[in-house]
């Protein structure tokens, strides 16, 4: 008799299938695979450079310019945009609220600030890439 609290089992491997919120979260977390891929790609690029062989470097560049890879990079960019950039920028006002007196600075200002910074930093990188 008496107490026997029942613990509902949670699957360690499929828990995120329980609701849409968790699925979207997992899709967000799956960008980590792309991060791994791009890290690997950067290492390859660096080692090619280190090999000091213009032909090898040219090969590497060409390998990234085929239609398959261009489509892949475009899709990866979209994936990052939808599952990292947009949601995180949207959440920025919550993580970094700015309060002036009694009032909170409208969240949209902080979000817009992030997009402006993003465009600016991208422009600087492109400029650097072009200049070099």
């Amino acid at each position: 008799m008496s107490r026997q609290p029942y613990v509902r089992p949670i699957s360690k491997t499929t828990w995120y299938m329980r609701n849409g919120r968790y699925k979207i979260y997992m899709l967000r977390e799956m960008t980590s695979f792309l991060v791994v891929f791009y890290t690997f790609l950067t290492i390859v690029a660096l080692s090619t450079l280190a090999a000091d062989s213009p032909a090898a470097w040219q090969n590497f560049i060409s390998s990234q310019q085929g239609p398959g890879m261009v489509v892949f990079h475009a899709l990866a960019l979209l994936y990052f945009l939808f599952f990292q950039t947009f949601p995180w920028f949207k959440l920025a006002p919550k993580a970094m609220p700015v309060q002036i007196g009694e009032k909170k600075l409208p969240g949209s200002y902080i979000v817009i600030g992030h997009y402006v910074a993003w465009v600016f930093i991208s422009a600087v990188i492109f400029w650097l890439a072009g200049a070099l």
Binding site: R21, Y22, Y25, L91, K94, A95, M96, P97
Partner: peptide, 19 residues
Amino acid sequence: GACSEVCPKHVDPAAAIQQ
């Protein structure tokens, strides 16, 4: 972020934790 979405009093604990 699920905590904040279900919070009936709009406390937004997720934001608090990030802060």
